[in-house]
Design a protein around this nucleic acid. Structure first.
Length: 885
DNA sequence: GAGTTTGAAACT
DNA sequence: CAGTTTCAAACTC
């Protein structure tokens, strides 16, 4: 392996040059430059994220190739933001770091002032190209922005700037002149000064916004405010400067003064980009508006996730800006659902959910729960920490984390509330914790390295002064929850490396040797990553579909819910009996599934046999019924009650969740007890089907996200679903205990969001790939069709998906089908059937009726499947392997 | 801390 | 696709 790497490295360098061109390309420069302006506002909001951004994420994993393009777009932005954040972080955390940063900031600020004022007098033309944006659209945006600014403050301004950047790329100079005029008019009232220059208006806006923001921010966090202000000055200025430089416009004014800042800015951008490796390569092309918009979104999300949510909306729709007030909640929801996917780069369009980090988290995630205890256990503040860590280190990509932060930073608690349960409390805390988090350090140091190698290094390594110390501390998992690697031969460029596999850069804690998994070698990392992905598209996908480690940890530390999570590919343990961390399933706190090839599985979280059996049982339940219900009823009832209490939770979602969750047993139990069964049955069926398929995993993730978005309650529901490990006696005990712990669960559920989101994000690539169609969408459609019953929604969902799959898979297993058409695909059932026979007593009965209904009306769904990737669990596994090979 | 065991990843 | 080798983590002493 080593041999390839060096070449890779060389290639990487070459690639870096290539990538750099992309970055450097006028378009990119424009975009970058433009975005910054808007960022100014965003910066305010975003501060909280600095931590998030800071993480050295390399490649989030936008797994799917299709997304790459989007990812590219995103990247550039992201880097910018990150850079800004970095500067912030540095400034905060360490004065030493501040030295450089502050100097930059000061320079940038001075430059900005120069720009604002000097430009007026001097060359408007300069900016014309630079802020070309000034297309009519831009003007409108500005107007909207002003309004928004007035009402909302900073956030709005940022948006406009983004658009401007975009517009700039697109718009021609001629347009600029016109736009300038229009802009002038808009801003004349306040901006008469700046009339001459296009640039000025935005700058002014930023300033105003900054002021407004400051006023608001003061309420929130003074320090943050300061940082934001600095950012504003820096980023915008930097960008502008870079713009100018690129444009070869008059540097004279700023030039000398700003040159440094400019260079730094460009460097910062690069640095940020590196972080963004996640998304793989920088997008070669930014041509399209959409692309630009995406970029903007990415930038927003990435750099300043917090505020950005609002801004992001704005990006998507100008109107949003005007509606700034509305926003937070709304924005949050959207930002999550929409933005995340986008910036992930997987597929801005397709995947409702980003793949991202979560996937990579696999190792990390798993590690976290075990080592640190489940995130769920953590309290809100802690959650932040954990989530932040995750996000920072590996998951930055994942929107979830950023989102929460956004809420915090953002503006208001409302955001937090909206975002995730975790978010709310976090907002204030998030920043601090983040700073504390080593993760941040990792990220920042990396980024800065290039620019401030000295500073950065000292900074990074200072914290981590002794990599080895941390390295091998007790566990590879850092305090952060991030996993550390100790690679010696692979240079951290193979999947052997947990960091690399997780899509993150190695950090100080890592004890790796000759590590190339660092921002400096971003290109190399990307190349290798691509190579690996070319072999196995899912190589960086989360191994565990749905990480429920939290639950596990929570309860007994032992198994909590085998069903909740599943290892995508399954383990192959021969000697460890899946009772040691050698087993990836066990390590991830998930039970073994039919996909596992383990011998003598005794996985505490769920035995493969049990899993299979449960599947069969579910099927049988559908057919027969009874036994199991009573057992579960108690717990289920309680759970149901809990759910009921949280009516916020949408049933369709629940259903989705159920359907999604591979762990049918849990569903069955809960659902049976509570309600009718139809829906439950439907779900059960879906579940049954799912287990085999890798697809279900995605669905689960998706559901998780849905849950998170919707409300904590959702999480609870999901948890409930996941919790029950039906088959295993211990599981049963778990369930019972869990029922008593309903509150705990709720807490857990709340906690989960962050991690869950991460997961989701991580899984995203897969998800969207297999099933861009989110159950939700389906549900929606179904609902509309069927009507009220969530169950019906489920059925619909099933139908939608299943038709093809069901047909395919279903046919073989008709016998089973009766109970659940879905099973079609599951080969495992065969063996299960036997087991089921024995276990059948436990089978859930309710399912049957519903099933019948569902079945007739609807063809069996194939869980996941969406089309391609989803197909079957087997398919997934095979695909991974085959594809890899 | 060194050495062994283990299973995934990579290779053939 | 199966078998082998390589690798790093997990584990033991």
């Amino acid at each position: 392996m080593g041999s390839p790497e060096p070449p890779n490295i060389s290639t990487a360098t070459s690639t870096s040059s290539e990538s750099s061109p992309v970055q450097d390309s006028p378009l990119t420069s424009y975009i970058n430059n433009l975005s910054p302006i808007k960022l100014v506002k965003g910066a305010h909001v975003a501060q909280g994220f600095s931590g998030l951004n800071s993480p050295p994420l390399v490649f989030t994993s936008p797994r799917i190739s299709s997304h790459h393009e989007t990812s590219f777009l995103k990247r550039p932005q992201y880097p910018q933001l990150s850079s800004a954040e970095l500067s912030h972080n540095d400034g905060r955390d360490k004065k030493s770091a501040d030295g450089p940063c502050e100097s930059e900031k000061q320079v940038t600020q001075s430059c900005r002032q120069l720009i604002t004022y000097a430009h007026k007098d001097c060359d408007i033309n300069k900016y014309a190209p630079a802020q070309p944006c000034s297309s009519s659209v831009c003007v409108t945006e500005y107007l909207a922005d002003h309004v928004a600014v007035d009402s909302v403050s900073s956030g709005d301004s940022a948006n406009p700037s983004h658009k401007q950047s975009i517009d700039v790329a697109e718009s021609s100079l001629s347009d600029l002149t016109d736009s300038k005029k229009t802009i002038k008019f808009d801003h004349e009232n306040d901006m008469e000064k700046y009339e001459g220059t296009e640039v000025e208006p935005p700058l002014v806006m930023s300033e105003k916004a900054a002021e407004d923001l400051q006023g608001k921010l003061i309420d929130y966090v003074k320090p943050a405010k300061n940082e934001e202000e600095q950012r504003k000055g820096q980023q915008p200025m930097n960008e502008l400067l870079t713009m100018e430089s690129d444009m070869s416009v008059d540097h004279n004014f700023k030039g000398q003064r700003c040159e440094d800042s400019c260079t730094q800015a460009s460097e910062n951008q690069r640095v940020i980009r590196r972080r963004c490796l996640q998304f793989e390569e920088a997008p070669p092309n930014f041509v399209g508006n959409s692309a630009s918009s995406l970029d903007i979104t990415d930038k927003v999300t990435n750099s300043r996730p917090p505020a950005t949510t609002v801004e992001l909306e704005g990006l998507e729709s100008l109107d949003i800006n005007a509606a700034s007030s509305r926003g937070e909640t709304f924005t949050l929801s959207q930002s999550r659902t929409i933005l995340l996917p986008q910036y992930r780069g997987n597929s801005p369009l397709t995947a409702p959910k980003p793949s991202g980090i979560g996937l990579h988290l696999n190792s990390i995630v798993s590690a976290v729960p075990l080592g640190h205890g489940a995130i769920a256990d953590l309290k809100p503040a802690e959650r932040h920490m954990s989530s932040a860590v995750i996000s920072c280190h590996s998951l930055e990509n994942t929107r979830s984390c950023p989102i929460s932060f956004v809420a915090e930073d953002g503006k208001d608690n409302s955001m937090s509330s909206v975002a995730a349960s975790s978010a709310p409390s976090e907002s204030p805390n998030s920043k601090e914790p983040l700073n504390l988090l080593p993760v941040e350090f990792h990220a920042t140091p990396h980024d800065k390295r290039k620019f401030y190698s000295e500073y950065v290094e000292s900074y990074e390594y200072c914290q981590l002064s002794s990599k080895k110390k941390r390295k091998k501390t007790s566990s590879p998992i850092d305090n952060d929850g991030c996993k550390r690697c100790n690679c010696k031969k692979t240079k951290c460029l193979k999947l052997y490396c947990d960091c690399f596999a997780a899509g993150i850069y190695c950090a100080e804690p890592c004890a790796c040797q000759e590590c190339y998994n660092r921002p400096e070698y971003e290109d190399t990392v990307l190349e290798i990553r691509q190579q690996i992905e070319s072999r196995n598209p899912l190589a960086f996908a989360p191994k565990i579909v749905r990480p429920v480690p939290e639950f596990n940890n929570r309860e007994d530390g032992n198994r909590a819910t085998p069903s909740s999570g599943r290892h995508k590919r399954g383990c192959n343990c021969k000697k460890s009996m899946c009772l040691k961390k050698y087993c990836e399933c066990y390590q991830a706190n998930v039970g073994c599934s039919s996909g596992c090839r383990c011998d003598g599985c005794k996985n505490v979280y769920g035995r493969k046999e049990e899993y299979v059996a449960t599947e069969h049982v579910v099927n049988k339940e559908m057919i027969s019924d009874r036994a199991g219900e009573r057992r579960f009823e108690g717990t289920l009832d309680e759970r149901l009650e809990m759910v009921a209490t949280k009516k916020d939770f949408l049933r369709p979602e629940l259903y989705d969740l159920h359907s999604l969750t591979p762990q049918t047993p849990t569903f069955m139990c809960s659902e049976k007890s509570s309600r009718t069964l139809g829906s439950s049955d439907m779900l059960l069926q879906a579940n049954n089907e799912l287990p085999n398929v890798g697809c279900f995993d995605w669905q689960v993730d998706y559901n998780m996200e849905m849950m998170d978005q919707l409300s904590p309650s959702n999480n609870v529901v999901a948890n409930m679903c996941h919790q029950t490990p039906v088959s295993d006696p211990p599981l049963m005990t778990m369930s019972s205990s869990s029922s008593s712990k309903t509150t705990d669960w709720t807490n857990i559920s709340q906690v989960q969001p962050p991690p869950g989101t991460c997961y989701l994000s991580s899984s995203g690539p897969l998800r969207w790939r297999s099933s861009p169609i989110t159950p939700m969408a389906r549900l929606d459609g179904m609902k509309s069709v069927q009507g009220l019953d969530p169950d019906g929604g489920l059925c619909d969902i099933l139908e939608d998906e299943t038709p093809e799959i069901l047909k395919d898979s279903a046919t073989p297993i008709k016998s089973v089908k009766v109970s659940s058409p879905n099973q079609k695909r599951v080969s495992p059932p065969k063996s299960h059937l036997h087991e089921l026979g024995s276990n059948s007593s436990g089978g859930l009965r309710s399912g049957r009726k519903f099933i019948l209904k569902a079945v007739p009306s609807f063809p069996p769904l194939t869980p996941c499947i969406d089309s391609k990737g989803g197909t079957n669990s087997k398919a997934n596994n095979i695909q991974d392997d085959s594809s890899s090979k």
